Amino acid sequence: MNLADFVEINLSRATGAGLDPHEYLRVTGELSELDRWGEAFMRAARGHLERAAQADTAISAGEHFRTAARWFHFATLGPNHERALAAAEADTAMGRALDLLDPEARRIEGPGFAGWLRGPAGAAATAIVVPGLDSGKEEFHDVTDALLRRGLAVFTMDGPGQGALAATTTVRADYHRVIGRVVDALGAGSVGLVGLSLGGYYVAESAAREPRVAAAATVSGPFRLIWDDLPPFLRDVVVQRAGGEDAARRFTGQVDLSDLAPRIACPLLVVDGGQDTVPGMVNGEQLARLAPHGRYLCVPHGDHLLGNARPDWLATAADWLSGALT
C-alpha cells in the first residue's frame, strides 16, 4: 500500500480515536515514505509529552499525556521497527494520564491481558472494551468515556497480540478464555462486552461460550474472515500478530461465527458501516440475524470503525449496553 492510500484509510480511524485532524494531516503531510510513519508519529507523541511537562495544571498535563498515548499507539500501525517500543510508550503515557485525570483508575493484569478499570466502586454493572487486530486500549477511550458517563464501571484492555502485549503474545481465536480470566480478576458476576473491528469477533465468540456475558455489542466486527481474499497489507498485519504465515492462516480460518452465533443467548447489538467493504471480511449482518436476540444497526455512510459517523452510533450503542446491563 502506498503512503497516500495509507494516510487516507487511517484518517477516519485516527480522528475517531481522538487525534486532532489538523495535526494528523500536518504530521502525515510531512512524510515522504510510509517507512517513516512510526518515526513521525512517535515524534508527535513526544511533543505532547513535552507539553505535559510544561503544563500549568494537572488537568492539562493529563490531557497531553492521553493525547501522547494515542499518538504512540498510532505509531504502531505503519511499518515500524520500533513497534514494541511505541506500544510500551503508549501504555506508559496512558498510565500517567490516568494518574492525573482519574486517580481511582486501577491497573489490572493477568495471563494474557492487561488494562485499566475505571468508574465508581459501586457501579451497577461492568463493561469490558475489547480492541481489534492491530489496536489497543489507548485507541478507544472515547467509548470508555461514553460508558462511564452512563454509570458503568469499564475495563479497557489489551489481550493476546494487542497493544502492550503484542511483543510477547500472539492472537488467539478462543478469546473467551481470556475474557473468563478478566471476569475472574474483576470479581464481577456478569459483564457487558464491546468489541471493535476484530474485537467484534472476540466479543461474539465470548458471548457464545462464556455464560457470564450478560450483553454484547460489536462495531465493525467480522462474521467471517477469508484468507485468500484479504488484501496483502491486511494479511501482513495478521502474520505479524499471529507470529507467522501458517499461524495466520490457521487463525483466520477459525474466525467464523456461523456455528456460534445461534448460541449467543444474551442481547447483542451489531453495528456496521455501509462503506466498510474490506475484501475477505464478511460483515456482521449475518451475526445479528442468527443470534437469538440480535439487533442490527447499519450506518450507510459509516466506514470501518465508523470514525466518520460517531454521532450515528456511539451514543446509541452506549445507551443500549447500559440499558441491557442495568
Rank of each mutant, 00 (worst) to 15 (best):
Ile226Tyr: 12
Pro311Thr: 07
Asp102Glu: 15
Gly302Ala: 07
Ala97Ser: 13
Asp259Pro: 05
Ala4Gly: 04
Asp134Gly: 13
Ile9Thr: 14
Pro222Glu: 09
Ala87Tyr: 01
Glu285Ala: 13
Leu290Thr: 10
Leu305Asn: 02
Arg224Leu: 03
Leu287Asn: 02
Phe233His: 03
Ala167Arg: 10
Gly151Pro: 12
Thr57Trp: 12
Val271Lys: 04
Asn80Gln: 07
Gln254Cys: 07
Arg295Leu: 12
Glu39Leu: 08
Ala53Asn: 13
Phe6Glu: 14
Arg66Asn: 12
Val191Thr: 07
Gly274Met: 02
Arg209Thr: 14
Thr277Glu: 10
Leu198Ile: 05
Ala68Val: 08
Glu82Gln: 09
Ala75Met: 06
Ala125Gly: 08
Arg250Ser: 09
Ala261His: 05
Arg83Leu: 14
Tyr296Gln: 07
Leu186Pro: 04
Ser206Met: 04
Arg212Trp: 10
Tyr175Leu: 10
Trp227Glu: 11
Glu245Arg: 09
Val219His: 00
Ala207Pro: 02
Pro232Tyr: 12
Ser135Arg: 05
Ala217Tyr: 02
Ala265Lys: 01
Arg250Ile: 01
Val7Asn: 03
Asp256Met: 01
Gly221Tyr: 05
Gln162Asp: 04
Asn2Thr: 10
Glu138Trp: 03
Thr316Leu: 11
Gln240Ile: 14
Glu89Cys: 14
Ala53Pro: 10
Asn283Glu: 13
Gly119Arg: 01
Phe223Ser: 05
